[in-house]
Write a protein that binds this DNA or RNA. Structure first.
Lengths: 244, 244
DNA sequence: CGAAACGTTGAATGGTTTCAACAAGAGTGG
DNA sequence: CCACTCTTGTTGAAACCATTCAACGTTTCG
């Protein structure tokens, strides 16, 4: 079994507060109910009511909304350590769907578990609120990206953000990271057509900035990419240099 | 002085829970610290730290992000009864700015006030969490709109959403509502150019769907507009027919 | 009166989509 | 094992939606 300190959630929250032994014990208890989900089969479907929340421990998930005409918009990508579906605990029905990208493992979190955390580990509770606020800030930044940036900048920004987030759980660096997304995922996330995603990726590759290929993202010129994307990681609220 | 039941926040939260007299008293107390802000002058500027939160009681506010190249993306519009800046209480710095649209009045809310609510009025606290979740759902829907809809549908959706939200605080109906936004605001909110906003508005007007003019939105054919926008208000979590 | 903010319209440009066709690899069933 | 399909990636050409540039009208306000 994984050591508590190596659970992705522990690594992530450590960026915000120093976790005590008691906090870590609570995190371990939150991971009691382990669940596995198969690739492509929705965990939660938009319109469903009374859904549980999850903490993702292995694999990637995307949360998206389907429109009546069939087009899809990916709202956010979840990587290990991220919460999933916390919001739908409060609203009567889930307003979006979750699709595992590849096989995943997640811990189920019930409303009662959260109350336990708030009662027993207030510092941890604060850290969780921090994570939720940060998720919201990411959605906002995503919106700005789509609304006011061209395809190239969007793509660069998206790949950089994922890199920073993965670095927080020790799964990425300034050199690159493994990435199970397809070009279709990128298209649905960035509000582009799959064809255009392909062209933009080629362009970034030819410019010697970044390569997206065979499930791996490789940064060739990190600084120039940051410049192109106007990527300012302040909204991620991660102190100091994260990508080393 | 306004009766408590007529404070916009009371009206809004009533859509979620029946408020007791004690709850109303707490809402009244939350409105102790009244503040006025002048049009156009930012209340909070992105990058600032340690900001207070507010409850908007009179007037409209927009929250936005400015990019290095000067382009602006409006993330959300706040109307009476809405919270403002709750998120920046937790993150170290505010990731976006707030600009009053016209002169506004708002009640300042300090972190201590929130603790008081959570301790004294748990039902009200739940209602506030509902409102926060709903705000988040609106940002998500906004993202989908910008990512996957054309200019006409975006505009229609935006005007309809505002209508529904205003109906909740008795400031709008299926006939229309007063709206202090300029075409520039619409452009920055929808990720369009101001020129194109003008064209789209003309198109909607000529089709006999909706008129945006002289600070007033008039719905001519509400149902056809809903159809065009593919507007499904489920994400607003407002039960029953709101617009009568 | 002049300036500033807002609204309006035309023409040219351009980023992105759509349509279409093809290539390569994985998985499936006969 | 091989044909078959499905998924994913790739590229070209035409069409289109939205932007940019430019000009002008209107209203407000100091």
């Amino acid at each position: 079994m994984t050591k508590v300190e190596n659970i992705p959630l522990s690594r992530k929250l450590s960026a915000f507060v120093a976790l005590s032994k008691a906090d870590l014990a609570v995190i371990e208890r939150l991971h009691r109910r382990r669940r596995s989900f198969a690739s492509g089969r929705d965990m939660v479907h938009q319109g469903q009511a009374g859904q549980a929340a999850y903490i993702l421990s292995v694999g990637w998930v995307c949360s998206y909304k389907i429109q009546p005409d069939g087009t899809r918009q990916i709202v956010d990508i979840q990587v290990p350590g991220d919460f999933l579906g916390l919001r739908s605990v409060l609203l009567r029905t889930s307003d979006h769907s979750f699709e595992p990208i590849g096989e995943i493992q997640a811990a189920e979190v019930l409303p009662g578990d959260l109350l336990e955390v708030f009662a027993q580990a207030p510092r941890l509770a604060l850290a969780i609120l921090w994570a939720v606020s940060r998720d919201e800030a990411m959605v906002v930044e995503h919106l700005v990206c789509i609304g006011r940036r061209d395809a190239e900048a969007r793509m660069a920004h998206f790949l950089l953000e994922l890199g920073s987030r993965l670095a927080l759980v020790k799964m990425g660096s300034k050199a690159g990271y493994d990435c199970p997304l397809t070009q279709y995922h990128l298209a649905d996330a960035l509000g582009l057509s799959a064809v255009h995603v392909n062209r933009v990726l080629r362009q970034l590759r030819d410019s010697g900035l970044v390569t997206f290929r065979d499930g791996h993202v490789t940064f060739h010129d990190y600084n120039r990419l940051v410049e192109l994307a106007e990527f300012d990681p302040a909204y991620l609220d991660q102190i100091g240099p994260l990508l080393k």
